[in-house]
């Protein structure tokens, strides 16, 4: 275990090398909590685009995200954690100022 605590958003992926020797597997069917090795980012077809200029940081989009994929940025405004957003659109639906729009994912 290394790096940031597993509970600190945006809950970064951890490097994980698949076992190649029998002795390397856990001694029972168990693993460290928060062992995140694979992104869910490939699930989504839409991306929540946030009009941050008008955002007052009420936090409802963070509250209603089932995936913990909306996090605070350094300016106290919401930001999408790309590894965990599945594009469900709950954040957009619950934004009281309608500042989030589900749209095609921006190409990097």
């Amino acid at each position: 275990m290394s790096g940031a605590p597993v509970t600190a958003p945006p809950c970064a992926l951890r490097p994980f090398a698949r076992e190649t020797q029998l002795a390397a597997w856990p001694a029972t069917p168990q693993a460290d909590a928060g062992q995140l090795v694979a992104s869910n980012g490939g699930w989504r077809s839409l991306w929540p685009a946030i009009a941050l200029d008008a955002c007052n940081g009420c936090g409802l989009c963070l509250l209603f995200c089932p995936d913990g994929a909306m996090v605070w940025n350094a300016h106290g405004l919401p930001e999408v954690a790309a590894d965990w957003c599945k594009g469900c659109g709950l954040c957009a639906r619950e934004c009281p100022k309608d500042l989030i729009v589900m749209q095609a994912e921006p190409t990097p």
Binding site: M1, P26, A27, T28, P29, Q30, A31, D32, A33, Q35
Partner: peptide, 17 residues
């Protein structure tokens, strides 16, 4: 001990494989 929870390093037990 394998198969037990840990206070210092939480564990997922009885998992799927």
């Amino acid at each position: 001990f394998p198969g037990t929870f840990r206070a210092d390093a939480p564990q997922s037990l009885a998992i799927t494989a």
